[in-house]
Amino acid sequence: MHKYILKRLLMMIPVLIGITFIIFVILNMTPGDPALIILGSEATDETIAQLREELGLDDPLLLRYGRYMLNLMRGDLGRSYLNDRAIFPAIMERLPITLSLAFLSLLIAVVVAIPLGILSATKQYSFLDSASMILCLIGVSIPNFWLALLLILLFSVKLSLLPSGGLNHGLVSYILPAITLATSGAASMARQTRSSMLEVIRQDYIRTARAKGVRKNKVLIRHALKNAIMPVITLMGLTLGRNFGGAVVVESIFTLPGTGRLLLEGIRSKDIPMVMGCVVILSILISIANLLVDIVYGFVDPRLKAEYK
């Protein structure tokens, strides 16, 4: 198992190289001179040229990429073009907000989706099943920026129950953003739970369990869910990864000062080191989320554990 985890961590390296390279190239192809952005429109050609020299912007692309990666290995993500602050601490300062948002919304999704999926599966074709599946369809289709606005309209403007943005109310501030971010993940998780439960409850070993005299509900949880949960776990990993990305939109709408907003501000002001830094950190988080899924697999399914060598 340890060996497997180590192997997976090492596999993150080529993934990161790929991602950073692509982002680096794209950012360099976008128009606009960073030196001009830093110095403002009144700068003379001379000062611009001098700054370009200082930042190494005149060097070839590959050389600049190599330099960036070398610094990255030392944990140095560079300095912001905008305010000359070091990138790494700037991201770390904002990261807890994004992490809380992502995990909270995953938690909401799991708590809602799994019971709903099980219920739908056990009462297949009932009213409850149809109603919850229609709800799920709406859930996956609804764009989250729009859902966010509707939630703000209802809970903040009409009912004045929850804050419409900011972080002034502690955990309560996270409720609406987390629900917004959780919706589509919860919907697909519920559908996945339902369909994989439906498949499992028709298996022979479920009949064996019933023939042993195990209570119906216990059969569902102990015998069926443990088998049916595997694809749902995969989905949890993907959802967590998507939450890190989705945070960009949600944090902007709810004015949460998280990494997502940092990334968006970086893109707007063409702060290349900031954008790169955010992308690198988010990719590492997504890779870790996927690794977590694989480790959890090993605990849930003994057949896979044997293969983790």
């Binding site: 070993y205 064996t208 369990a209 015998h223 443990k226 088998n227 849930v300 399914d301 003994p302 057949r303």
Partner: peptide, 9 residues
Amino acid sequence: MTSLNPVLT
């Protein structure tokens, strides 16, 4: 082959 639960000992 199919009548035992694969995830329980």
